[in-house]
Simulated assay, not measured.
Amino acid sequence: MLNGNQLNAVEVIHGVVDGQPWERIIHLTGAPAEILRRGERVSCLHRESSKHFHASSSRLQALLKHQDFTVPVNYILRKGGDGRVAGREAYRVDVLPKDKARYGYQFWLDKASGLLLKSVTVDRKGRGLEVFEFVSIDIRDAIDPAVFNPGEGLHWADKPQTELEAPVPQLNWKLSWLPTGFDLSGSEMRVVDGVAASTKVFTDGLAAFSVFLEKIDSRIHTEGTQTHGATTALSRRLPVKNGEYLVTVVGEIPMETAMQVAMAVRLAGDVR
């Protein structure tokens, strides 16, 4: 996996257990970490902590599984050339954006199985920003569920029930502008260090970004921008009558799009 100028190696184990997709992604570089998925339940595991969330199927997953797939309206699908990836014959599919609000993609699919062997996120000039590529792949008819168990020192643990039931104050806000084709796909309210934080996730079927909103001390200067490969992060302060809030946009979208989204946050009311 190449993100910008940073190369990371991971091992991916994927299969179907009891009719549900299971997946285990093992980071082979850096600190030990794994991402485990069982159906819509996803956990990010580290030796010191773990985070849990739910994930739903995307149009990209439907494409890779050869299910009914409709190309998102803001993209054009074109057949590219042929080649070899991970020692297997493959063909390339180019997914071209119709506007400047999103990136394009190149997908290399295995001719024999249709599996995704390589994906490249590209900017408007066709430059590669992020690359996922298998260097070795083993396709089997059956898989032992035990291979999805966490590695040594990592544990799959549920959130304590008290944390799940803790009341969380709500933030009432919306976006006055969204890039064409993006819709809300999920939202969450949490309390971090005693401060209410709201998260909303938007997707156009291929690209996705998250918007975070939390109240801050007006003396804290936390604005800034950062780009790493295809991932953009932007934070700006939002002054309101009862103080200031920090708006953060993170996702695989161009910086110009992230700026427009951050400027479009409208707080409809204080914490209620």
Rank of each mutant, 00 (worst) to 15 (best):
K100A: 13
P21L: 10
A268P: 02
L115E: 00
L36V: 09
G83M: 08
I143C: 10
L116E: 02
E214R: 14
V42F: 05
V201C: 05
K159V: 11
V201D: 00
W22N: 08
T29W: 09
K159F: 14
R41A: 10
S210L: 07
T199M: 12
L129Y: 04
Q161V: 14
R127V: 05
P145S: 06
E188R: 02
L184D: 01
G39V: 01
G205C: 02
L63G: 00
S119N: 00
S210K: 04
R272V: 14
S235V: 05
T231Q: 04
V261S: 01
V168D: 08
R78C: 07
R219L: 11
V85R: 01
E34S: 09
V17M: 09
R124M: 15
N3S: 15
S210P: 10
V249T: 04
K100G: 03
Y105S: 01
I253L: 05
Q161S: 15
L246S: 05
R88Y: 07
P167Y: 04
N149K: 14
K100H: 12
Q67I: 02
D144A: 15
G15F: 09
G269N: 13
S56E: 13
R190H: 08
F53P: 01
W156A: 08
H221Y: 12
G194K: 06
S56Q: 14
R78T: 12
S49N: 13
G114C: 06
N149T: 13
R237G: 08
A264L: 09
A9M: 14
D183H: 10
L129F: 02
A208I: 06
A55Y: 03
D82Y: 11
A112S: 13
K200M: 06
T257W: 00
F132E: 00
A112C: 11
P72S: 06
Q67M: 09
F69A: 06
L64G: 03
P72G: 04
G186K: 02
M255G: 07
A258D: 07
S57P: 12
S49I: 12
R41G: 05
R266I: 13
F69K: 05
W108M: 00
V131K: 01
R140S: 12
L63T: 03
S49L: 15
I26Q: 00
L7D: 11
R102L: 04
V122R: 01
L28A: 12
H66S: 14
K79F: 10
R88V: 03
H52R: 08
D144G: 08
L109P: 00
